[in-house]
């Protein structure tokens, strides 16, 4: 398997622009309803936090939470190294809440499936929507984003990496192309 280097898909100003647009679309869709924004660890939580800050600056009644889906993964059996658990933090009643779930990259949809299962274990939300920065395709479950930064066409074995200053010390979305496995 050979790698042909890293291509930049989105730079810092693009990311800022996409996030502002996601925030604007959320406000447009929900003009006066209290919202609960929930980010999936780790970079989904960063994305979520940034949108939350924008909504708060506009005086919106908004709650913020984070979700650790490790215990809800469907592939724990096969992992030689078990994921660390950071725990979920949902400091608002999930029952009846309008939740917008955030993740950085939407791929197979399995992470979102796990997050939905975990959310309903906290209570019965009125509604759950999905916001992602990048949709790279190759879905294995019937899941689609309600708010989307950028759609990218990729091959199954490509690697898409989102970097945020908070977690990676730099800003950008990168694609690493890999030759398909024989």
């Amino acid at each position: 398997m050979s790698e042909t280097g890293e291509t930049s898909l989105l730079a810092a100003p693009d990311i800022r622009h996409k996030i502002e647009r996601i925030a604007a679309q959320i406000v447009e869709a929900h003009p006066d309803r209290p919202l609960a924004l929930v980010g999936i660890h780790t970079r989904g939580a960063v994305l979520c936090r940034r949108v939350y800050d924008i909504l708060r600056a506009r005086g919106r009644d908004t709650a913020f939470g984070t979700l650790d889906i490790a215990l809800y993964r469907d592939d724990l059996d096969n992992l030689g190294t078990i994921p660390s658990i950071r725990g979920s933090d949902l400091p608002f009643p999930v029952e009846g809440a309008h939740i917008i779930l955030f993740d950085d990259v939407l791929f197979t949809g399995r992470t979102i499936r796990a997050a939905l299962d975990e959310l309903v274990d906290y209570g019965r939300p009125a509604r759950i929507e999905l916001a992602v920065l990048v949709d790279r395709g190759h879905r294995e479950l019937p899941i689609a984003p309600d708010y989307l930064g950028q759609s990218i066409s990729t091959a199954r074995h490509d690697h898409v990496r989102v970097c945020f200053t908070e977690t990676d010390g730099r800003e950008g979305v990168f694609l690493t192309r890999s030759a398909p496995q024989p």
């Binding site: 215990l71 809800y72 724990l76 299962d117 975990e118 274990d121 906290y122 209570g123």
Partner: peptide, 8 residues
């Protein structure tokens, strides 16, 4: 939590 179980 209301549901104290996880599916791990």
């Amino acid at each position: 939590r209301s549901v104290k179980k996880v599916p791990a």
